[in-house]
């Protein structure tokens, strides 16, 4: 299991990278490599050119602003875990990052890589959807921002064009008081989730849920926004009420049977995990509200 030959380049500027990417050659972007290199080793990916973006300046930044927390594409998963900035601004990200693989994976894996690879069971795409994040995309001809929900379109499929690169991901900050939680079910520690749920709740002046973001991973060809659940959450004012909305998750997801689980088990897990995530998010939001 060794990669087939390819050409490698390590551009020093984004423009140089984008130019190569737009050259029409069968090129792939190499960031952390934790998803791409296994595919290369198994001969499932056979690019002619590999563009290593690790040397590009300015893509590893973590920038809080009024619009939210902007993560450069090269921010490593391990950094999400250790950054106090991330923990303060988007605690959901820090909690989710702890569930990504093992430290050796987190040390190399990048935010942009995980987003662009779009594994439906991966944590960051799920959080991006729950947070209504937007993906900043660049190509030689310009840049655009795409809401996460429009970005992920199927198994490993995104709206990213062959000449485009993920430049950053912008996670809007939740209006406080808010609370969030991730629940994940995997057979072994560090595995890809069978199903995972990310939830964030913000409370209004009246102590009721005023805003909710819920997403499910591993229960369909792409991470799914749980819109029915979100709608049901608005106005909830008790842990029981919040939990009960999890039932609606079945309407938001379309899993299929596969080797690891049946579609119905995945639906079942989604409901259980949603209830647990929502209850924890609720408790955290409540605590945040009481602390004010």
């Amino acid at each position: 299991m060794k990669p087939l030959p390819f050409r490698y380049m390590k551009p020093q500027t984004l423009d140089e990278a984008l130019e190569a990417l737009g050259s029409g050659e069968d090129a792939k972007v190499l960031a952390g490599g934790q998803s791409l290199v296994p595919l290369l080793n198994m001969h499932l990916a056979r690019p002619a050119l590999l563009i290593d973006v690790n040397a590009l300046e300015g893509l590893s930044t973590i920038e809080p602003s009024d619009a939210g927390l902007r993560l450069g594409t090269l921010v490593r998963h391990q950094t999400l875990l250790t950054s106090s900035e991330v923990r303060r601004a988007v605690p959901l990200l820090a909690e989710a990052a702890a569930l990504i693989g093992h430290e050796a994976i987190r040390a190399r894996g990048t935010v942009g890589g995980s987003i662009a690879h779009a594994d439906p069971a991966a944590e960051l795409p799920m959080v991006a959807i729950a947070k209504r994040a937007t993906i900043g995309i660049r190509s030689a001809s310009g840049s655009r921002r795409v809401p996460a929900e429009e970005f992920f379109i199927g198994y490993l499929m995104t709206s990213l064009g062959p000449d485009e690169i993920v430049e950053d991901v912008l996670f809007p900050m939740a209006p406080s008081p808010s609370g969030s939680a991730v629940e994940e079910f995997s057979e072994r520690h560090g595995d890809f989730a069978l199903v995972a749920v990310a939830a964030e709740l913000s409370l209004g002046e009246d102590g009721r849920v005023a805003r909710a973001g819920v997403a499910v991973a591993g229960a369909g060809p792409a991470p799914a926004a749980a819109r029915e659940v979100e709608a049901a959450l608005i106005g909830q004012a008790s842990p029981e009420g919040v939990r009960a909305t999890a039932k609606a998750v079945a309407a938001d997801i379309a899993p299929e049977d596969d080797l690891h689980a049946s579609a119905s088990y995945r639906k079942h897990l989604a409901e259980i995990l949603a209830a647990r995530a929502l209850e924890r998010a609720w408790q955290r939001a409540k605590a945040a509200s009481e602390a004010r």
Partner: peptide, 18 residues
Amino acid sequence: SVMVDGEVVRSCLMLAVQ
């Protein structure tokens, strides 16, 4: 697993040129 710049990495998932 080896350490690269103090971090543990999978050396089967990293190109030598990197």
